[in-house]
């Protein structure tokens, strides 16, 4: 069950980048520019929908959003 949520996040990122077909859990989403500042809010909402949580923008820790692995650990563990 726990993997279904992170799959939604992965699908959302891949959906934005039709040239990619896969995304490893340790790829840095920021360094690779897969998620930029304007797409970030969409990423947060995607995670919220998939995880059923509300994320507080004022206390966001960017480390949690660095890779699929850190997202899974922070929001889907």
């Amino acid at each position: 069950m726990s993997s279904a949520g992170i799959d939604k996040v992965r699908d959302w990122i891949l959906g934005r980048h039709p040239d990619r077909t896969e995304l490893a859990a340790d790829v840095d989403l920021i360094e690779s520019r897969l998620v930029d500042s304007l797409a970030f809010v969409e990423l947060v909402y995607t995670i919220e929908d998939a995880a059923g949580v509300e994320i507080d923008f004022d206390t966001i820790d960017i480390e949690d959003f660095q890779t699929l692995a850190t997202i899974e650990k922070a929001f889907f563990a």
């Binding site: 920021i30 998620v35 930029d36 500042s37 970030f40 923008f57 966001i60 960017i62 959003f65």
Partner: peptide, 12 residues
């Protein structure tokens, strides 16, 4: 303002 404070904007 949020854009200027976003961690995802920081590099740029």
């Amino acid at each position: 303002r949020t854009l200027l404070r976003s961690p995802f904007s920081k590099r740029f």
